[in-house]
Simulated assay, not measured.
Amino acid sequence: MQRQSSYAQNEGKLYLVPTPIGNLEDITIRAKRILQEADYIAAEDTRTSGILLEKIGVHNHMLSFHKYNSKERAPELVKLMQDGAVIAEISDAGMPVISDPGFVLVQECIKNDIPVVPLPGASAFTTALIASGFDAQPFTYYGFLPRKAGEQKPYFVQMEQAHGTSIFYEAPHRLVKTLSNMATVFAPEREIVAARELTKIHEEFIRGTVQEVSQYFSENQPRGEFVILVSPNTEETEQLSWPELIELVDERVDQGESKKSAIKEVAQANQVSKNELYDRYHQK
C-alpha cells in the first residue's frame, strides 16, 4: 500500500495541468498560477504550447515531453523532482494523460514516491458528452482508434453492442473513411453525434443516424478535430449462460486469438465480469 501527501511543502512534485481545448478563457486561475510558479513546464509540443502560454501571459522554462521521447525523458524529469523541482505537465490541449504520454511520467513519479497533483479542467470528450443528448452514465472512452479499417471493426462491434455511450476521437482527413466503416457494422438507425471545434468559434454538433452523418461528411469536407459519440444500444438482449460464453471464448481461441484477449473481448461484449469469466473458463 502507498499513501501520497500532495501538498507537502518544500519538495519536488508533478502537477498535471489541463489547458484550454479552444477558448483561452477556459484556463483556470489555479492552472495559470501553477504554470507561472513551476520550475519547469513539460510540454507535448513546445511550439504549440509556447503560443498558448504567451497568450495567457505565462513565461516559463519548457521541456519537451512527447510520446517519442517519454520513456527516456521521464527518468530525467523524475531526477529533477527528486532534487526538489516542481514540474507542471501539459498536453497540447485539454487534460494531461488523456490521449497524451503523461501517464508514463505519472507512473515513474508513483514508483519513486513523488507526489502527483491533478488539476481539474477542460477535456474534449467530456465536453462533447454532456451536450450530446446521450446518457452520460455509463460511457466508454476509446481515444483515437487504429487507422486501418480491419483494426477498427472490433471496436465498432463493441460499441454496437454497448449499453453505454461510446466515445472516440478522429482527425478530419480520416473521418469519412471511419464513418463509412462504422456504417458497415451498425444498424442504419443507430444515432451518433459528431462534435467539432469544441469551445471555438465554429463549434458544431452534427446529430443523426450513422448513415445520415456519414452521408453529410461525404458531401461536406470535415474541418477541425472531431469527437464521435455513439448512442447506447437500448435493445433488450438475452444474457448468455456461462457455458455459452465459454464456448464463445473457445471459438475465438480456435481462430488464433490469445485466451487473455478472447476472454476480455467476450466479457466486454456481453457485459460480464472479465475476472469471473476468466475463473470459470479455467475451471472448465
Rank of each mutant, 00 (worst) to 15 (best):
G143T: 11
G143P: 10
G143Y: 09
F144S: 09
F144Q: 10
F144A: 08
F144W: 11
L145V: 08
L145Y: 07
L145R: 06
L145F: 05
P146N: 06
P146I: 06
P146F: 08
P146E: 07
R147T: 13
R147W: 00
R147L: 05
K148A: 10
K148R: 15
A149L: 01
E151K: 14
Q152T: 00
K153I: 15
Y155T: 01
F156S: 05
F156Q: 06
V157S: 11
V157I: 13
Q158G: 09
Q158D: 09
Q161Y: 06
Q161T: 12
Q161L: 14
Q161K: 13
Q161M: 14
A162R: 03
A162T: 03
G164M: 06
T165P: 09
T165G: 03
S166M: 02
S166P: 05
S166I: 01
S166E: 04
S166C: 13
I167F: 04
Y169Q: 08
A171L: 04
A171C: 08
P172G: 10
H173Q: 12
R174A: 05
R174H: 12
V176D: 07
K177A: 15
T178M: 15
T178P: 08
L179T: 07
S180V: 00
S180R: 13
N181V: 00
N181S: 15
N181L: 00
N181K: 00
M182T: 01
A183K: 06
A183D: 14
T184N: 12
T184P: 00
T184C: 03
T184A: 13
T184G: 06
V185K: 02
V185I: 15
V185A: 09
F186C: 09
A187Y: 13
P188N: 13
P188K: 14
P188V: 14
P188R: 12
P188G: 13
E189N: 12
E189Y: 11
E189I: 10
R190F: 08
R190Q: 15
R190K: 15
E191T: 03
I192G: 03
I192L: 14
V193W: 03
V193R: 03
V193P: 01
A194R: 02
R196W: 02
R196K: 11
E197S: 10
E197T: 06
L198S: 06
L198C: 03
T199M: 08
T199E: 12
K200M: 07
I201E: 13
I201Q: 09
H202F: 12
H202W: 02
E203D: 10
E203R: 01
E203N: 08
E203M: 09
E204V: 01
E204I: 00
E204C: 07
F205I: 04
F205V: 04
F205A: 05
F205L: 14
F205P: 07
F205D: 05
F205S: 04
I206H: 07
R207N: 09
R207D: 04
R207T: 09
G208A: 06
G208C: 07
G208D: 08
G208T: 07
T209S: 13
V210K: 02
V210N: 03
V210F: 01
